[in-house]
């Protein structure tokens, strides 16, 4: 498992709809802020890059210091962004794919308004489990 990882889902409107610190290091508040700042900044790159490839998994698209941003863009332009410090492309790709499935299940919920925050605790548990498994 990666020592530092921050996973975030950004809706097509550039609004974060799910956030999770999935790293194994002890949480520090300012670090968490920094993670979000990096992810927020990386959106600029995703925005352009997403249109250059047909693949959903964009791999590592940005980095700051030791932290790397990997992105997975769904067909609906929802972005799964993972900030991590380990380079485990395969694991990350699997992680993203599994999360995508989870996300689709969430979308299928008629009570879920696409683009709004994902508050399901089930989703959260599953994502964290996946993070432990793959990252």
């Amino acid at each position: 498992m990666a020592t530092t990882a921050c996973f975030i889902i950004v809706s097509r409107n550039d609004i974060p709809i799910y956030e999770a610190e999935v790293g194994s290091t002890v949480k520090r508040e300012d670090a968490a802020h920094l993670h979000q700042f990096i992810l927020h900044a990386a959106q600029d790159i995703v925005q352009d890059l997403a249109w250059t490839t047909s693949a959903m998994f964009l791999k590592a698209i940005d980095r700051f210091n030791d932290l790397v941003v990997s992105v997975y863009v769904t067909a609906g332009h929802t972005r799964f962004m993972l900030l991590h410090d380990s380079r485990n492309d395969d694991g990350i790709k699997s992680f993203f794919q599994e999360v995508h499935e989870l996300y689709i299940k969430t979308l299928l919920n008629p009570l879920y308004l696409p683009g709004s925050r994902i508050t399901s605790s089930h989703f959260d548990t599953k994502v964290r489990a996946l993070a432990r498994k793959y990252l």
Binding site: F37, I38, H40, A41, A42, Q43, D44, I45, F64
Partner: peptide, 11 residues
């Protein structure tokens, strides 16, 4: 035009 990046480094 990468304003978020710009903002990040500005910060």
């Amino acid at each position: 035009g990468y304003h978020r990046k710009a903002a990040f480094f500005s910060r």
